[in-house]
């Protein structure tokens, strides 16, 4: 029995060491600016040499729609698009905090829409935050809602095993293999498709109440003297009622019905590249003085 117990504990100890080493390696690579595979890690890579005039936050409906290079060319205002697909209010708040740890900015734009009432974690959008789980404000937010957060934080490599399809070996190797275009486009990523079928899309009415994550963002902005603007990006023919947003959010601008040309949409809630260019022009006209 002694031989077996010794074998078992040696193996257990070595396995734990392997897990610690793997956890360290994965975290280092994912949070390293050099290999950024998500906008969360890219934030650290944004140069502080040129002062940032603005930053955009939100979901795919901002990531695919606002083109910072176009804004730079037309207004000389330098900014970044930090929105990423599936992000909802909690992830947007995390991104704002994460961004302000590294950078200073004069104003921020936050895209809000049909998920305005959501206060819970988005299981997909939270994935890029896993390498940062040992950062207090990230952990505190996740631990409030995720019963496994403690294990994800303290069991070495457990977080990467649980999210293997998004943060596993394949994704890790892509950090070395695949060229990163996030930086080149200052965070904008366009889609090429064109919507074919005309229809009116129904969107569930919003509940008239404050969102605690967005309130917290407003407080952060106030403390840092940052002007905060909220907006809703275009939808194609929806019955979306933005009254709740107008009532609850300061500096709110409704663009939801601003583009009606079907050829500019990839689907009813995403513009294609052509639509993104048109919307960015609209965005510039609304928020930026033409400095060129």
């Amino acid at each position: 029995m002694k031989k077996f117990v010794s074998h078992f504990f040696k193996l257990l100890l070595l396995s734990v060491l392997v897990l610690i080493a793997l956890d360290f390696m994965y975290t280092k690579i994912y949070s390293s600016a050099r290999y950024n595979r998500s906008k969360v890690s890219w934030v650290k890579n944004i140069s502080n040499e040129t002062p940032l005039d603005y930053a955009v936050f939100g979901s795919s409906r901002a990531a695919f729609h606002i083109i910072p290079k176009q804004i730079l060319e037309k207004t000389n205002q330098f900014g970044v698009n930090l929105a990423y697909p599936a992000a909802t209010n909690l992830e947007i708040k995390l991104m704002v905090k994460h961004f302000l740890e590294e950078h200073e900015v004069k104003r921020i734009f936050i895209q809000v829409d049909k998920v305005y009432n959501k206060e819970t974690i988005d299981p997909i959008a939270i994935t890029p935050w896993m390498p940062y789980l040992r950062t207090d404000y990230v952990y505190n937010e996740i631990a409030k809602q995720d019963s496994l957060a403690f294990f994800k934080k303290y069991l070495p490599f457990y977080r990467y095993m649980l999210y293997d399809s998004k943060l596993g070996f394949r994704e890790l190797s892509m950090a070395f293999i695949k060229e990163d275009k996030v930086e080149e486009n200052l965070g904008f990523s366009g889609i090429n498709g064109t919507m074919k079928k005309e229809a009116t899309f129904r969107i569930k009415a919003l509940e008239n109440k404050k969102n605690r994550h967005l309130l917290e963002i407003l407080e952060i902005c106030k403390k840092n003297a940052i002007r905060c603007y909220f907006f809703t990006a275009p939808y194609y023919q929806t019955d979306f009622n933005t009254e709740v947003l107008k009532e609850n959010l300061p500096n709110y601008m409704d663009f939801s019905k601003s583009i009606n040309n079907i050829s500019m949409f990839n689907d009813y809630q995403h513009l294609n590249i052509q639509g993104a260019k048109a919307f960015t022009d609209l965005f510039i006209g609304t928020y930026f003085e033409n400095k060129k």
Partner: peptide, 18 residues
């Protein structure tokens, strides 16, 4: 031990757990 450890490493890195 070495053989088991290599196998465990493969399981940790390439296993499907999600």
């Amino acid at each position: 031990i070495l053989a088991s450890l290599i196998l465990m490493l493969l399981i940790f890195v390439f296993g499907s757990f999600s």
